[in-house]
C-alpha cells in the first residue's frame, strides 16, 4: 500500500517538474515548483517523518514560492520600464 502511494506521489511530482520546465508562463512554472514541494511533504508524512514534512511544506511550498513571486514581479516591472 505504502509503495503504491509513494509511486503515485512520485509520478505526480515528476509530472509537475516537467510542467515547470515546459510551461511557457513563468507564473505557472513557479506554482508547479511549489506543488512539487507540497507533494514531497506528503511523501515525508507517508514515510513517517512529520518533522521534515512540516519544514518542507512551510519553506518549500510557502516561503520559496513567495520569494520566486517577488523576483518575478520585479523582473516584470523592470521589463516594462526599460
Amino acid at each position: 500500500m505504502t509503495t503504491i502511494i509513494i509511486a503515485v506521489l512520485g509520478a505526480i511530482m515528476i509530472a509537475a517538474a516537467v510542467l515547470a520546465i515546459v510551461q511557457k508562463s513563468l507564473l505557472s512554472a513557479v506554482i508547479a515548483a511549489g506543488a512539487i514541494s507540497l507533494l514531497a511533504s506528503l511523501l515525508y508524512i507517508v514515510l513517517a517523518a512529520p518533522d521534515v514534512a512540516m519544514t518542507e511544506a512551510a519553506i518549500g511550498s510557502g516561503l520559496t514560492t513567495i520569494v520566486f513571486l517577488f523576483a518575478l514581479n520585479k523582473i516584470r516591472k523592470e521589463d516594462k520600464h526599460g
Partner: peptide, 17 residues
C-alpha cells in the same frame, strides 16, 4: 509533538507574509 523551533518560526513568518 513533531516540529520545533525552526518549523514554528517558519509558520509565524508565513503568517506575517
Amino acid at each position: 509533538t513533531p516540529g520545533g523551533g525552526f518549523q514554528g518560526g517558519v509558520v509565524i513568518a508565513s503568517g506575517m507574509v
